[in-house]
Amino acid sequence: MMSAVVEGKAASSHAETGRTAKSRSHMALFLALLAAGLVAPFFLYPVFIMKVLCFALFACAFNLLLGYGGLLSFGHAAYFGGASYITAHAAKVWGLTPELAILVGTLAAAVLGLAIGALSIRRQGIYFAMVTLAFAQMVYFISLQVPFTGGEDGIQAVPRGELFGLISLKSDFSLYYVVLAITFGGLLAMHRIIHSPFGQVLTAIRENEARAISLGYRVNRYKLMVFVLSATLAGLAGSTKAIVFQVASLTDVHWSMSGEVVLMTLIGGMGTFFGPVVGAAVIVTMQNYLASFGAWVTVIQGAIFVVCVLLFREGIVGKAASIFKKFGAAVRKS
C-alpha cells in the first residue's frame, strides 16, 4: 500500500520508546492548534476558518482510511455530500435543531459507509479506488434525481437554528465555536482510534496483511470498521458544513470533491496525523484567493497533484517532520 510506503519509513525509525514521545508532541500540537483556533476569529473571517475546519475534519477522516487503514478511497464525497444533504433536509424540512440535524446526517453517512464499504473491501488496491469512485458517482446521480435534494439548485436557505433549542447560531461568532468544538472532537476521536489496540491491529494489517490473517485477525472486519469510521467522520464534516453555509449542493457529492480531499491529504502529508489539517488550510486558502480565476483553479490543483506525486510525496508535514528529525540528529551529534 502507498501509505505503507509513506509510513514505513516513519514507523521503522520510531521504536516503541518513540511512541510516547510522539503522542506527547501530538498533545502539544493539539493544544497549540486549539489555542490558535480559540483566538483565530478575532483576526480572521470566521466563515473562512469554519470552512477550513470542516475540510480539515473531512481530510483527516479520509486520511484515517488511507494513512492508517491503507485504503485509498476515491469516493469520499459520497459521505461528505450525502450527509450534508440529509442534515440540510433535517434542519429545513423536519425542523430539527442543528445538533440533531448534524447527528442525523452523520448517522446517514455511517449507514452509507457500511453499505459501500462492505462491497468495496472485496477488492484491493487500484480496484478499491475505482470501486469507491464508482459508488460515489452512483450517489451523485441519485442526488441529481431524487426530489428532496433539489437537483441542480440543491437545498438552500438551511436554517442554522438554535443549538439544543437554546442558543442561536445566527451569528458567525457563536457558530464558530460550535464548529471548533465539533472539529476538535472529531480529531481527538481519531487520535484515540489510531492509538487504541484497534489502531495497532490496523497498522499490522497495513504493513503485512497476510501475516495479520495468519495471526487470526479477521482482516476484513477491521477494514470495514475503519471504512465506516472514516465515512462517519467525513459525514460529520459534511453535515457541519451544511449548517455553516446553509446550503447542500451537488458540488459536495461530485467526484471533484473526492479528488480535492485526496489532494489536501497528499499535499499535507499522507499518514501524518496533522498533515490533512495543513493540506485543507492550504487548499481552501488557495481556492479563496483564486476564486476569480475560474477553471484555472482546476488546472492548478492538477499541477499540484503532479508535482506532489513526482517530487513531494512526503507532503508538508511529512517533510517538516523529516527535516526536524535530521536537525535533531545533527544537534545530538554536535
Binding site: M1, M2, A4, V5, L72, F74, G125, I126, A129, G259, V262, L266, G294, A295, W296, V297, T298, V299, Q301, G302, A303, I304, F305, V306, C308, V309, L310, R313
Partner: peptide, 23 residues
C-alpha cells in the same frame, strides 16, 4: 512506487487538460 501514485498522477494530468480546455 505503489501503483496508486500512477492513479493520482494521471488524475492530476486529467484535471490540467480539462481545466485548460475549459478556460
Amino acid at each position: 512506487l505503489d501503483h496508486l501514485y500512477g492513479l493520482l498522477l494521471t488524475f492530476g494530468v486529467a484535471l490540467i487538460v480539462q481545466g485548460v480546455l475549459r478556460n
